[in-house]
Design a protein around this nucleic acid. Structure first.
Lengths: 249, 249
DNA sequence: CGGCCCGTTGAGGCAAGTCAATCCACGTGG
DNA sequence: CCACGTGGATTGACTTGCCTCAACGGGCCG
Protein backbone atom coordinates (compact mmCIF):
# COMPACT_ATOMS: atom_id res chain seq x y z
CA UNK A 1 0.00 0.00 0.00
CA UNK A 2 1.19 3.48 -0.71
CA UNK A 3 1.18 6.32 1.74
CA UNK A 4 -2.05 8.03 2.58
CA UNK A 5 -0.68 10.95 4.46
CA UNK A 6 1.81 13.73 4.34
CA UNK A 7 3.16 16.37 6.62
CA UNK A 8 2.99 20.04 5.97
CA UNK A 9 5.58 22.57 6.93
CA UNK A 10 4.11 26.03 6.62
CA UNK A 11 2.31 25.22 3.43
CA UNK A 12 5.06 23.31 1.68
CA UNK A 13 4.23 19.68 1.87
CA UNK A 14 6.46 16.71 2.38
CA UNK A 15 5.38 13.31 1.25
CA UNK A 16 6.18 10.65 3.77
CA UNK A 17 6.87 6.95 3.46
CA UNK A 18 4.09 4.57 4.40
CA UNK A 19 2.42 5.29 7.68
CA UNK A 20 1.30 2.76 10.20
CA UNK A 21 -1.54 1.20 8.27
CA UNK A 22 -3.03 -1.87 9.81
CA UNK A 23 -5.43 -4.30 8.27
CA UNK A 24 -7.80 -5.33 10.96
CA UNK A 25 -9.62 -7.99 8.99
CA UNK A 26 -13.12 -9.14 9.84
CA UNK A 27 -13.11 -7.86 13.34
CA UNK A 28 -15.69 -5.08 13.35
CA UNK A 29 -19.32 -5.57 14.18
CA UNK A 30 -20.99 -5.36 10.78
CA UNK A 31 -20.31 -8.75 9.30
CA UNK A 32 -19.01 -9.51 5.85
CA UNK A 33 -16.36 -6.81 5.70
CA UNK A 34 -13.57 -7.80 3.41
CA UNK A 35 -11.10 -5.65 5.27
CA UNK A 36 -11.02 -2.62 7.51
CA UNK A 37 -8.00 -0.44 7.14
CA UNK A 38 -6.72 1.88 9.78
CA UNK A 39 -4.77 5.03 9.11
CA UNK A 40 -2.88 6.84 11.81
CA UNK A 41 -2.07 10.50 11.45
CA UNK A 42 0.23 12.71 13.42
CA UNK A 43 -0.69 16.32 14.19
CA UNK A 44 -0.59 18.58 11.14
CA UNK A 45 -0.36 15.62 8.84
CA UNK A 46 -2.50 15.79 5.75
CA UNK A 47 -4.53 13.04 4.19
CA UNK A 48 -3.65 12.55 0.57
CA UNK A 49 -4.50 9.95 -1.98
CA UNK A 50 -7.83 9.15 -0.41
CA UNK A 51 -9.13 5.71 -1.29
CA UNK A 52 -10.45 6.12 -4.78
CA UNK A 53 -13.13 3.49 -4.52
CA UNK A 54 -16.51 5.10 -4.62
CA UNK A 55 -18.26 2.94 -2.07
CA UNK A 56 -15.62 3.12 0.59
CA UNK A 57 -16.38 5.03 3.72
CA UNK A 58 -13.56 6.71 5.59
CA UNK A 59 -14.44 7.56 9.13
CA UNK A 60 -12.74 9.30 12.02
CA UNK A 61 -11.88 6.84 14.76
CA UNK A 62 -10.38 9.24 17.24
CA UNK A 63 -8.77 12.63 17.28
CA UNK A 64 -9.84 15.85 15.62
CA UNK A 65 -9.27 16.79 11.99
CA UNK A 66 -10.04 19.82 9.89
CA UNK A 67 -11.35 20.08 6.38
CA UNK A 68 -9.22 22.79 4.80
CA UNK A 69 -9.78 24.74 1.64
CA UNK A 70 -6.64 26.38 0.32
CA UNK A 71 -7.55 28.62 -2.59
CA UNK A 72 -3.96 29.72 -2.93
CA UNK A 73 -2.41 33.07 -2.17
CA UNK A 74 -1.86 32.33 1.50
CA UNK A 75 -5.55 32.16 2.16
CA UNK A 76 -7.15 29.33 4.04
CA UNK A 77 -10.71 28.57 4.96
CA UNK A 78 -11.43 25.72 7.33
CA UNK A 79 -14.72 24.30 6.19
CA UNK A 80 -15.42 21.95 9.04
CA UNK A 81 -13.93 20.18 12.00
CA UNK A 82 -14.18 16.41 11.97
CA UNK A 83 -14.38 14.36 15.14
CA UNK A 84 -14.85 10.76 16.19
CA UNK A 85 -17.64 9.16 14.18
CA UNK A 86 -17.65 11.73 11.43
CA UNK A 87 -17.21 10.56 7.89
CA UNK A 88 -14.55 12.13 5.71
CA UNK A 89 -16.37 13.77 2.79
CA UNK A 90 -14.43 12.00 0.10
CA UNK A 91 -16.48 13.71 -2.57
CA UNK A 92 -15.04 17.01 -1.43
CA UNK A 93 -11.38 16.07 -1.49
CA UNK A 94 -11.34 13.51 -4.24
CA UNK A 95 -10.99 15.69 -7.28
CA UNK A 96 -10.66 19.08 -5.70
CA UNK A 97 -6.97 19.51 -5.00
CA UNK A 98 -7.57 22.73 -3.10
CA UNK A 99 -9.53 20.87 -0.40
CA UNK A 100 -7.84 18.46 1.96
CA UNK A 101 -8.06 16.91 5.39
CA UNK A 102 -5.56 17.69 8.11
CA UNK A 103 -5.10 16.16 11.52
CA UNK A 104 -5.15 18.66 14.37
CA UNK A 105 -4.29 16.07 16.96
CA UNK A 106 -2.99 12.58 16.74
CA UNK A 107 -5.82 10.84 14.95
CA UNK A 108 -6.84 7.51 13.52
CA UNK A 109 -9.13 6.89 10.59
CA UNK A 110 -10.95 3.68 9.79
CA UNK A 111 -11.88 2.69 6.29
CA UNK A 112 -14.82 0.39 5.65
CA UNK A 113 -17.08 -0.66 2.83
CA UNK A 114 -14.63 -2.20 0.42
CA UNK A 115 -16.96 -4.73 -1.08
CA UNK A 116 -19.03 -3.81 -4.09
CA UNK A 117 -21.92 -6.12 -3.26
CA UNK A 118 -24.97 -4.38 -1.88
CA UNK A 119 -27.00 -5.92 0.96
CA UNK A 120 -25.04 -4.84 4.00
CA UNK A 121 -23.88 -1.95 1.87
CA UNK A 122 -27.27 -0.44 2.50
CA UNK A 123 -26.42 0.06 6.13
CA UNK A 124 -23.15 1.74 5.28
CA UNK A 125 -24.88 3.88 2.76
CA UNK A 126 -27.59 4.97 5.12
CA UNK A 127 -25.01 5.80 7.73
CA UNK A 128 -22.89 7.79 5.34
CA UNK A 129 -25.97 9.59 4.10
CA UNK A 130 -26.85 10.59 7.64
CA UNK A 131 -23.30 11.78 8.04
CA UNK A 132 -23.55 13.81 4.87
CA UNK A 133 -26.72 15.38 6.18
CA UNK A 134 -25.02 16.31 9.41
CA UNK A 135 -22.15 17.86 7.55
CA UNK A 136 -24.53 19.76 5.33
CA UNK A 137 -26.31 21.07 8.38
CA UNK A 138 -23.05 22.16 9.91
CA UNK A 139 -22.10 23.84 6.66
CA UNK A 140 -25.42 25.68 6.68
CA UNK A 141 -24.79 26.73 10.22
CA UNK A 142 -21.41 28.05 9.29
CA UNK A 143 -22.89 29.95 6.36
CA UNK A 144 -25.17 31.65 8.85
CA UNK A 145 -22.30 32.38 11.20
CA UNK A 146 -20.03 33.91 8.64
CA UNK A 147 -22.82 35.56 6.71
CA UNK A 148 -24.74 37.51 9.28
CA UNK A 149 -22.98 37.67 12.59
CA UNK A 150 -20.27 39.87 13.99
CA UNK A 151 -17.04 38.65 15.47
CA UNK A 152 -18.31 38.35 19.02
CA UNK A 153 -21.36 36.33 18.04
CA UNK A 154 -19.26 34.07 15.85
CA UNK A 155 -16.85 33.20 18.62
CA UNK A 156 -19.63 32.71 21.12
CA UNK A 157 -21.45 30.45 18.69
CA UNK A 158 -18.32 28.50 18.01
CA UNK A 159 -17.51 27.84 21.63
CA UNK A 160 -21.13 26.99 22.32
CA UNK A 161 -21.28 24.64 19.35
CA UNK A 162 -17.98 23.00 20.04
CA UNK A 163 -18.95 22.35 23.62
CA UNK A 164 -22.15 20.68 22.46
CA UNK A 165 -20.27 18.76 19.83
CA UNK A 166 -17.88 17.14 22.26
CA UNK A 167 -20.83 16.24 24.42
CA UNK A 168 -20.73 18.84 27.14
CA UNK A 169 -24.11 19.71 28.60
CA UNK A 170 -25.06 23.13 29.77
CA UNK A 171 -24.21 21.99 33.25
CA UNK A 172 -20.76 20.77 32.48
CA UNK A 173 -18.29 23.08 34.15
CA UNK A 174 -15.30 20.98 33.22
CA UNK A 175 -12.60 22.08 30.88
CA UNK A 176 -13.25 22.27 27.16
CA UNK A 177 -10.47 21.13 24.89
CA UNK A 178 -9.94 23.33 21.86
CA UNK A 179 -7.40 21.24 19.99
CA UNK A 180 -6.99 23.73 17.17
CA UNK A 181 -4.68 26.72 17.14
CA UNK A 182 -5.95 30.28 17.17
CA UNK A 183 -5.22 30.49 13.50
CA UNK A 184 -7.32 27.42 12.84
CA UNK A 185 -10.19 28.85 14.80
CA UNK A 186 -9.89 32.18 13.06
CA UNK A 187 -9.80 30.56 9.65
CA UNK A 188 -12.85 28.54 10.51
CA UNK A 189 -14.76 31.61 11.64
CA UNK A 190 -13.54 33.62 8.67
CA UNK A 191 -12.03 36.31 10.81
CA UNK A 192 -8.67 37.69 11.70
CA UNK A 193 -6.45 36.03 14.26
CA UNK A 194 -6.07 39.35 16.05
CA UNK A 195 -9.77 39.96 16.17
CA UNK A 196 -10.34 36.48 17.53
CA UNK A 197 -7.81 37.10 20.23
CA UNK A 198 -9.49 40.34 21.21
CA UNK A 199 -12.87 38.66 21.48
CA UNK A 200 -11.50 35.80 23.54
CA UNK A 201 -9.86 38.25 25.89
CA UNK A 202 -13.11 40.16 26.21
CA UNK A 203 -14.95 36.96 27.04
CA UNK A 204 -12.43 36.25 29.74
CA UNK A 205 -12.70 39.67 31.34
CA UNK A 206 -16.48 39.22 31.26
CA UNK A 207 -16.02 35.95 33.14
CA UNK A 208 -17.72 33.98 30.40
CA UNK A 209 -14.73 31.72 30.00
CA UNK A 210 -11.41 31.10 31.68
CA UNK A 211 -8.31 30.12 29.82
CA UNK A 212 -6.70 27.05 31.31
CA UNK A 213 -3.89 26.82 28.82
CA UNK A 214 -3.25 27.28 25.15
CA UNK A 215 -5.57 24.47 24.13
CA UNK A 216 -8.20 24.35 26.82
CA UNK A 217 -10.71 26.73 28.35
CA UNK A 218 -13.31 26.45 31.03
CA UNK A 219 -16.78 27.70 30.27
CA UNK A 220 -17.84 29.70 33.28
CA UNK A 221 -21.12 31.09 31.99
CA UNK A 222 -22.69 28.77 29.48
CA UNK A 223 -25.94 30.71 29.50
CA UNK A 224 -24.12 33.94 28.83
CA UNK A 225 -22.44 32.45 25.80
CA UNK A 226 -25.75 31.11 24.58
CA UNK A 227 -27.29 34.55 24.77
CA UNK A 228 -24.46 36.03 22.76
CA UNK A 229 -25.23 33.65 19.91
CA UNK A 230 -28.31 34.52 17.85
CA UNK A 231 -28.36 31.02 16.44
CA UNK A 232 -27.93 29.16 19.69
CA UNK A 233 -31.23 27.36 19.30
CA UNK A 234 -30.29 26.26 15.80
CA UNK A 235 -26.95 25.02 17.04
CA UNK A 236 -28.64 23.07 19.80
CA UNK A 237 -31.10 21.57 17.33
CA UNK A 238 -28.36 20.47 14.98
CA UNK A 239 -25.73 19.34 17.42
CA UNK A 240 -27.65 18.57 20.54
CA UNK A 241 -29.55 15.33 20.26
CA UNK A 242 -27.30 12.95 18.45
CA UNK A 243 -27.92 9.61 20.13
CA UNK A 244 -25.57 7.69 17.93
CA UNK A 245 -25.24 3.94 18.22
CA UNK A 246 -21.55 3.46 17.82
CA UNK A 247 -21.61 0.24 15.80
CA UNK A 248 -18.04 -0.70 16.57
CA UNK A 249 -18.91 -2.86 19.58
CA UNK B 1 -53.63 15.52 1.67
CA UNK B 2 -53.01 18.76 3.49
CA UNK B 3 -51.29 21.79 2.07
CA UNK B 4 -47.61 21.68 1.48
CA UNK B 5 -47.07 25.30 0.73
CA UNK B 6 -47.71 28.77 1.96
CA UNK B 7 -47.23 32.27 0.73
CA UNK B 8 -45.17 34.87 2.43
CA UNK B 9 -45.92 38.53 2.62
CA UNK B 10 -42.88 40.37 3.81
CA UNK B 11 -42.04 37.83 6.41
CA UNK B 12 -45.49 37.19 7.80
CA UNK B 13 -46.68 33.92 6.45
CA UNK B 14 -50.12 32.90 5.33
CA UNK B 15 -51.08 29.28 5.24
CA UNK B 16 -53.02 28.39 2.15
CA UNK B 17 -55.61 25.76 1.37
CA UNK B 18 -54.46 22.75 -0.59
CA UNK B 19 -52.40 23.51 -3.64
CA UNK B 20 -52.55 21.77 -6.94
CA UNK B 21 -51.19 18.41 -5.89
CA UNK B 22 -51.45 15.67 -8.43
CA UNK B 23 -50.87 11.99 -7.95
CA UNK B 24 -49.25 10.75 -11.09
CA UNK B 25 -49.31 7.06 -10.22
CA UNK B 26 -46.88 4.55 -11.66
CA UNK B 27 -45.93 6.62 -14.61
CA UNK B 28 -42.28 7.46 -14.07
CA UNK B 29 -39.40 5.42 -15.36
CA UNK B 30 -38.13 3.63 -12.29
CA UNK B 31 -40.61 0.78 -11.87
CA UNK B 32 -42.43 -0.17 -8.71
CA UNK B 33 -43.18 3.32 -7.43
CA UNK B 34 -46.25 3.35 -5.29
CA UNK B 35 -47.02 6.92 -6.18
CA UNK B 36 -45.30 10.06 -7.37
CA UNK B 37 -46.70 13.28 -6.04
CA UNK B 38 -46.32 16.60 -7.72
CA UNK B 39 -46.35 19.92 -5.93
CA UNK B 40 -46.77 23.19 -7.77
CA UNK B 41 -45.56 26.40 -6.23
CA UNK B 42 -46.15 29.96 -7.17
CA UNK B 43 -43.41 32.59 -6.88
CA UNK B 44 -42.55 33.49 -3.28
CA UNK B 45 -44.53 30.54 -2.01
CA UNK B 46 -42.91 28.58 0.79
CA UNK B 47 -42.78 24.86 1.23
CA UNK B 48 -44.12 23.80 4.56
CA UNK B 49 -45.00 20.49 6.10
CA UNK B 50 -42.46 18.61 4.06
CA UNK B 51 -43.22 14.93 3.66
CA UNK B 52 -42.21 13.46 6.96
CA UNK B 53 -41.30 10.04 5.68
CA UNK B 54 -37.62 9.49 5.94
CA UNK B 55 -37.09 7.67 2.70
CA UNK B 56 -38.99 10.03 0.49
CA UNK B 57 -37.07 12.13 -1.94
CA UNK B 58 -38.37 15.53 -2.92
CA UNK B 59 -36.86 16.85 -6.09
CA UNK B 60 -37.12 20.02 -8.12
CA UNK B 61 -38.90 19.38 -11.40
CA UNK B 62 -38.69 22.86 -12.86
CA UNK B 63 -38.25 26.39 -11.70
CA UNK B 64 -35.79 27.87 -9.23
CA UNK B 65 -36.09 27.77 -5.46
CA UNK B 66 -34.04 29.11 -2.61
CA UNK B 67 -33.11 27.54 0.68
CA UNK B 68 -33.64 30.29 3.21
CA UNK B 69 -32.43 30.54 6.76
CA UNK B 70 -34.36 33.07 8.81
CA UNK B 71 -32.68 33.45 12.17
CA UNK B 72 -35.16 36.10 13.17
CA UNK B 73 -34.65 39.80 13.64
CA UNK B 74 -35.19 40.65 9.99
CA UNK B 75 -32.08 38.79 9.00
CA UNK B 76 -32.04 36.32 6.18
CA UNK B 77 -29.34 34.13 4.74
CA UNK B 78 -29.99 32.25 1.54
CA UNK B 79 -28.05 29.03 1.86
CA UNK B 80 -28.46 27.70 -1.64
CA UNK B 81 -30.38 28.00 -4.85
CA UNK B 82 -32.16 24.87 -6.02
CA UNK B 83 -32.78 24.13 -9.66
CA UNK B 84 -34.19 21.36 -11.82
CA UNK B 85 -32.85 18.01 -10.68
CA UNK B 86 -31.73 19.19 -7.26
CA UNK B 87 -33.04 17.37 -4.24
CA UNK B 88 -34.67 19.33 -1.45
CA UNK B 89 -32.54 18.77 1.65
CA UNK B 90 -35.37 17.53 3.83
CA UNK B 91 -32.98 16.99 6.71
CA UNK B 92 -32.35 20.71 6.78
CA UNK B 93 -35.94 21.88 6.88
CA UNK B 94 -37.60 19.01 8.69
CA UNK B 95 -37.05 19.99 12.27
CA UNK B 96 -35.38 23.32 11.86
CA UNK B 97 -38.19 25.85 11.66
CA UNK B 98 -35.78 28.64 10.81
CA UNK B 99 -34.87 26.99 7.51
CA UNK B 100 -37.35 26.70 4.69
CA UNK B 101 -37.66 26.43 0.93
CA UNK B 102 -39.11 29.23 -1.16
CA UNK B 103 -39.99 29.31 -4.83
CA UNK B 104 -38.39 32.16 -6.74
CA UNK B 105 -40.24 31.36 -9.92
CA UNK B 106 -43.20 29.20 -10.66
CA UNK B 107 -41.89 25.79 -9.76
CA UNK B 108 -42.92 22.18 -9.52
CA UNK B 109 -41.56 19.56 -7.16
CA UNK B 110 -41.79 15.82 -7.59
CA UNK B 111 -41.86 13.46 -4.67
CA UNK B 112 -40.65 9.88 -5.06
CA UNK B 113 -39.54 7.00 -2.88
CA UNK B 114 -42.67 6.33 -0.88
CA UNK B 115 -42.18 2.62 -0.46
CA UNK B 116 -40.21 1.32 2.46
CA UNK B 117 -38.92 -1.74 0.63
CA UNK B 118 -35.35 -1.52 -0.49
CA UNK B 119 -34.21 -2.90 -3.85
CA UNK B 120 -35.03 -0.09 -6.21
CA UNK B 121 -34.65 2.18 -3.22
CA UNK B 122 -30.95 1.75 -3.67
CA UNK B 123 -31.06 3.76 -6.85
CA UNK B 124 -32.98 6.56 -5.21
CA UNK B 125 -30.64 6.51 -2.29
CA UNK B 126 -27.54 6.68 -4.41
CA UNK B 127 -29.02 9.52 -6.39
CA UNK B 128 -29.98 11.46 -3.31
CA UNK B 129 -26.54 10.84 -1.86
CA UNK B 130 -24.93 12.29 -4.95
CA UNK B 131 -27.26 15.23 -4.65
CA UNK B 132 -26.30 15.72 -1.04
CA UNK B 133 -22.67 15.69 -2.03
CA UNK B 134 -23.28 18.34 -4.64
CA UNK B 135 -25.07 20.48 -2.14
CA UNK B 136 -22.29 20.03 0.34
CA UNK B 137 -19.79 21.09 -2.29
CA UNK B 138 -21.83 24.16 -3.10
CA UNK B 139 -22.05 24.97 0.59
CA UNK B 140 -18.29 24.68 0.85
CA UNK B 141 -17.94 26.94 -2.12
CA UNK B 142 -20.16 29.49 -0.51
CA UNK B 143 -18.18 29.30 2.70
CA UNK B 144 -15.13 30.18 0.66
CA UNK B 145 -16.94 33.01 -1.08
CA UNK B 146 -18.28 34.62 2.02
CA UNK B 147 -15.26 33.84 4.12
CA UNK B 148 -12.36 35.14 2.14
CA UNK B 149 -13.46 37.25 -0.78
CA UNK B 150 -14.48 40.86 -1.15
CA UNK B 151 -17.71 42.09 -2.65
CA UNK B 152 -16.46 42.27 -6.21
CA UNK B 153 -15.03 38.76 -6.19
CA UNK B 154 -18.21 37.41 -4.64
CA UNK B 155 -20.45 38.85 -7.31
CA UNK B 156 -18.13 37.77 -10.10
CA UNK B 157 -18.01 34.27 -8.66
CA UNK B 158 -21.73 34.16 -8.33
CA UNK B 159 -22.45 35.19 -11.89
CA UNK B 160 -19.76 32.83 -13.13
CA UNK B 161 -21.14 29.97 -11.07
CA UNK B 162 -24.74 30.63 -11.94
CA UNK B 163 -23.92 30.71 -15.61
CA UNK B 164 -22.21 27.35 -15.33
CA UNK B 165 -25.05 25.99 -13.27
CA UNK B 166 -27.69 26.73 -15.85
CA UNK B 167 -25.48 25.13 -18.43
CA UNK B 168 -23.92 28.07 -20.19
CA UNK B 169 -20.48 27.45 -21.61
CA UNK B 170 -17.77 30.02 -21.74
CA UNK B 171 -18.76 30.62 -25.33
CA UNK B 172 -22.42 31.21 -24.67
CA UNK B 173 -23.15 34.85 -25.30
CA UNK B 174 -26.86 34.48 -24.78
CA UNK B 175 -28.77 36.07 -21.97
CA UNK B 176 -28.45 34.74 -18.46
CA UNK B 177 -31.63 34.58 -16.42
CA UNK B 178 -31.20 35.67 -12.82
CA UNK B 179 -34.61 34.75 -11.46
CA UNK B 180 -33.89 36.05 -7.99
CA UNK B 181 -34.27 39.64 -6.82
CA UNK B 182 -31.33 41.82 -5.85
CA UNK B 183 -32.18 41.20 -2.24
CA UNK B 184 -32.08 37.48 -2.77
CA UNK B 185 -28.74 37.69 -4.47
CA UNK B 186 -27.37 39.94 -1.75
CA UNK B 187 -28.63 37.66 0.99
CA UNK B 188 -27.01 34.72 -0.73
CA UNK B 189 -23.69 36.50 -1.03
CA UNK B 190 -23.95 37.81 2.53
CA UNK B 191 -23.62 41.40 1.46
CA UNK B 192 -25.65 44.53 1.33
CA UNK B 193 -28.16 45.18 -1.41
CA UNK B 194 -26.57 48.56 -2.01
CA UNK B 195 -23.10 47.14 -2.28
CA UNK B 196 -24.32 44.52 -4.71
CA UNK B 197 -25.90 47.17 -6.83
CA UNK B 198 -22.69 49.16 -6.90
CA UNK B 199 -20.67 46.15 -7.97
CA UNK B 200 -23.13 45.24 -10.70
CA UNK B 201 -23.03 48.78 -12.01
CA UNK B 202 -19.26 48.69 -12.01
CA UNK B 203 -19.28 45.43 -13.95
CA UNK B 204 -21.54 47.03 -16.50
CA UNK B 205 -19.36 50.08 -17.00
CA UNK B 206 -16.40 47.71 -17.38
CA UNK B 207 -18.34 45.94 -20.11
CA UNK B 208 -18.20 42.64 -18.29
CA UNK B 209 -21.95 42.30 -18.35
CA UNK B 210 -24.94 44.07 -19.84
CA UNK B 211 -28.25 44.36 -18.10
CA UNK B 212 -31.09 43.24 -20.33
CA UNK B 213 -33.82 43.76 -17.78
CA UNK B 214 -34.46 43.34 -14.11
CA UNK B 215 -34.06 39.57 -14.20
CA UNK B 216 -31.66 38.93 -17.03
CA UNK B 217 -28.16 39.96 -17.95
CA UNK B 218 -25.85 39.17 -20.82
CA UNK B 219 -22.32 38.13 -20.03
CA UNK B 220 -20.10 40.09 -22.37
CA UNK B 221 -16.71 39.08 -21.00
CA UNK B 222 -16.83 35.63 -19.49
CA UNK B 223 -13.07 35.47 -19.19
CA UNK B 224 -12.98 38.78 -17.38
CA UNK B 225 -15.46 37.53 -14.82
CA UNK B 226 -13.45 34.36 -14.39
CA UNK B 227 -10.33 36.33 -13.65
CA UNK B 228 -12.14 38.37 -11.02
CA UNK B 229 -12.99 35.18 -9.15
CA UNK B 230 -10.12 33.61 -7.22
CA UNK B 231 -12.06 30.37 -6.97
CA UNK B 232 -13.11 30.15 -10.59
CA UNK B 233 -11.31 26.86 -11.07
CA UNK B 234 -12.99 25.39 -8.04
CA UNK B 235 -16.35 26.56 -9.30
CA UNK B 236 -15.72 24.99 -12.66
CA UNK B 237 -14.65 21.75 -11.02
CA UNK B 238 -17.76 21.58 -8.90
CA UNK B 239 -20.37 22.84 -11.31
CA UNK B 240 -18.85 22.15 -14.68
CA UNK B 241 -19.05 18.52 -15.56
CA UNK B 242 -22.39 17.27 -14.41
CA UNK B 243 -23.55 14.85 -17.08
CA UNK B 244 -26.74 13.86 -15.35
CA UNK B 245 -29.09 11.30 -16.85
CA UNK B 246 -32.52 12.75 -16.24
CA UNK B 247 -34.42 9.57 -15.43
CA UNK B 248 -37.83 11.07 -16.04
CA UNK B 249 -38.08 9.95 -19.62
C1' DC C 1 -51.77 59.23 -14.56
C1' DG C 2 -50.42 58.09 -9.94
C1' DG C 3 -48.79 54.82 -6.63
C1' DC C 4 -45.67 51.24 -5.49
C1' DC C 5 -41.89 48.38 -5.44
C1' DC C 6 -37.41 47.50 -6.75
C1' DG C 7 -33.20 49.19 -7.75
C1' DT C 8 -29.58 52.83 -7.79
C1' DT C 9 -26.75 56.59 -5.82
C1' DG C 10 -24.47 59.54 -2.24
C1' DA C 11 -22.54 60.81 2.37
C1' DG C 12 -20.86 59.33 6.67
C1' DG C 13 -19.52 56.03 10.40
C1' DC C 14 -17.90 51.86 12.34
C1' DA C 15 -16.41 47.16 12.82
C1' DA C 16 -12.87 44.55 11.48
C1' DG C 17 -8.56 44.04 8.87
C1' DT C 18 -3.57 45.20 8.62
C1' DC C 19 0.84 45.82 10.33
C1' DA C 20 4.08 46.03 13.88
C1' DA C 21 5.65 45.55 18.45
C1' DT C 22 5.44 43.01 22.55
C1' DC C 23 4.35 39.36 25.63
C1' DC C 24 4.11 34.76 27.12
C1' DA C 25 4.50 29.66 27.37
C1' DC C 26 7.37 26.16 26.61
C1' DG C 27 11.27 23.49 25.42
C1' DT C 28 16.42 23.37 25.21
C1' DG C 29 20.94 23.58 26.42
C1' DG C 30 24.54 25.43 29.21
C1' DC D 1 18.42 25.92 37.91
C1' DC D 2 18.36 29.63 34.92
C1' DA D 3 19.34 32.07 30.42
C1' DC D 4 17.92 31.77 26.01
C1' DG D 5 15.37 30.95 21.63
C1' DT D 6 11.22 30.12 19.24
C1' DG D 7 6.65 30.22 17.84
C1' DG D 8 2.20 31.28 19.18
C1' DA D 9 -0.74 34.70 21.25
C1' DT D 10 -1.87 39.34 22.66
C1' DT D 11 -2.10 44.27 22.21
C1' DG D 12 -2.05 48.95 20.02
C1' DA D 13 -2.37 52.43 16.17
C1' DC D 14 -3.93 53.07 11.89
C1' DT D 15 -6.59 52.16 7.66
C1' DT D 16 -10.43 50.66 4.90
C1' DG D 17 -14.27 48.26 2.80
C1' DC D 18 -18.61 47.69 3.66
C1' DC D 19 -22.86 48.79 6.11
C1' DT D 20 -26.23 52.29 7.32
C1' DC D 21 -29.49 55.53 6.19
C1' DA D 22 -31.66 58.53 3.35
C1' DA D 23 -32.87 60.33 -1.07
C1' DC D 24 -33.66 59.59 -5.77
C1' DG D 25 -35.02 57.19 -10.18
C1' DG D 26 -37.49 54.27 -13.11
C1' DG D 27 -40.12 50.56 -14.65
C1' DC D 28 -44.71 48.17 -13.93
C1' DC D 29 -49.50 47.78 -12.77
C1' DG D 30 -53.74 49.44 -11.40
Amino acid sequence: MGSFAEDTINGSELIHPPILTQVLGRSLGAGGQLGVKRIDLRPQQRLVRAPAHDRQVLMVGEGVLSLDALPGKGQRQILDFLMAGDVIPLSAIQFLPTISVRALTKATLVCTGDQDEDECNLRDMRNSRDQLQSQLQRAHLQQLLVGHMDAEARVASFVFAFALRVGADAQTRSSLELPMSRDDMADYLAMNRDTLSRVMMRFETQLLIARLNRHAIRVLNFEGLRQLSPVASLIAAILGRHEKSGATA
